[in-house]
Simulated assay, not measured.
Amino acid sequence: MQKRDKVLIVDDEQAIVELMGLYLKSDYEVINAYNGGEALERVKADKPDLVLLDVMMPDMNGYEVCRILKTSVETQFLPVIMVTALSGKDDRIKGIEVGADEFLGKPVNRLELVTRVKSLLRIKHLQDKMLAERNDAINYFDEAGFIAIVIDTQLKINLVNKKGNQSLGYEEFELIGQDFVNTLIKEDMRSDVRAYLEAAVVGSSLPEYSELVVECKDGSEILVRWYDSLLKDGDGNITGVICSGEDLSIFEE
């Protein structure tokens, strides 16, 4: 049996909670909360897939609950629909500022409620799939037995795997944002390497491999054989280069 999505309904008026629950319970597992504090507890305990959140509540209003959810790493991608009797432009802007994904007016229209919940959950499932695939790729990248460095079209380092940091003597995030050429390439080779990479990110072909002496953080040097590949977005535009390197120094006597 397919697992049903969980929808958390938050409103300090029990009748409204029950009515929205009635509209949704045939398709979703419905969870109820009657104030902001209880809503945050239910999110933590039950891990809903979507939240229907009333704006006007006495202890903690919906804006504050939404802000907390959208600024937490664990819940930043949790869809939130703000449900409100307020119709002013400023109220909607405030909701957008705290990260609300959608808005529903009171009294709630059944068709509108069901349609928006279904639409946002479809988007969430796509995001979940993409994040899972991205995490799998990053885990593979991180555990690879070779040096791997991703640079953008400005030749700034965006990502370094564990092997890369270990081989070059850097802490986990220390190289992020640094210029690849100025930081890692020997001074007498920098102009040639920069010209080669700048040509690559505008479409020039890449060689099968290249061998370069790389400077480590402590000033020591290692010889690395690089296998470079272009990174492209869905439209085929070049977004950077992934530099995969084999440390040849370990084979030297």
Rank of each mutant, 00 (worst) to 15 (best):
L8K: 03
S244C: 14
N35G: 04
L69S: 08
N182Q: 14
C216L: 04
D233Y: 10
G169L: 02
I96E: 11
L223R: 13
S205F: 07
V108S: 04
M57H: 08
N109P: 00
N161E: 02
D235V: 08
D91W: 06
T75W: 03
D136C: 05
L131E: 13
D179K: 05
Y28L: 10
Y170H: 05
M82A: 07
P207I: 10
V213Q: 03
I138Y: 09
M56E: 10
D192H: 12
E252V: 08
K232C: 10
V117D: 00
Q166H: 13
R67C: 06
L212F: 10
D46W: 11
S191E: 13
K129A: 14
A200D: 01
V98L: 06
I31G: 08
V98F: 09
L78P: 09
Y28S: 01
S205R: 15
K3T: 12
Q2A: 11
I138T: 13
E211W: 07
A33D: 02
K6H: 09
G203I: 04
S205Y: 11
L168E: 01
T239C: 05
G37V: 08
G240V: 02
V241T: 10
Q127R: 15
L111A: 15
S249K: 05
E112L: 13
V30Y: 01
D27A: 14
L86M: 14
D90F: 11
S204P: 04
T84I: 08
G21W: 06
N165E: 06
M1C: 10
V30H: 01
V17P: 02
Q2W: 10
S210A: 13
I31F: 05
V98R: 04
R67W: 14
S167F: 07
Q127I: 15
H125L: 11
L223N: 14
L86D: 08
I149R: 00
Q14R: 12
K106P: 11
T75I: 00
V80D: 05
N158C: 15
G219E: 07
G236H: 01
G105P: 07
L19F: 08
Q166M: 14
R134A: 11
F173R: 13
K232H: 09
K217P: 07
K217C: 01
A137F: 15
I242S: 02
E187M: 08
D49W: 02
V117A: 02
N158Y: 12
T75R: 00
V181Y: 04
L230T: 14
N35E: 12
D90K: 12
V224F: 08
V98M: 09
V73W: 03
I16V: 15
V73P: 00
D27M: 07
E211Q: 14
V108L: 02
V193I: 15
L50R: 04
F141E: 03
L19P: 03
D90W: 08
E246D: 13
D247V: 14
Q178Y: 13
Y34A: 07
L126M: 13
F103H: 05
P207N: 07
K163E: 10
A195Y: 11
I157Y: 02
Q178C: 12
E221A: 09
I157D: 02
S204F: 08
K3N: 11
G240D: 03
L104H: 09
M60Q: 03
M82F: 09
D101Y: 03
D179G: 02
V65E: 00
D228W: 00
V17M: 02
L24R: 06
Q166F: 15
G37N: 13
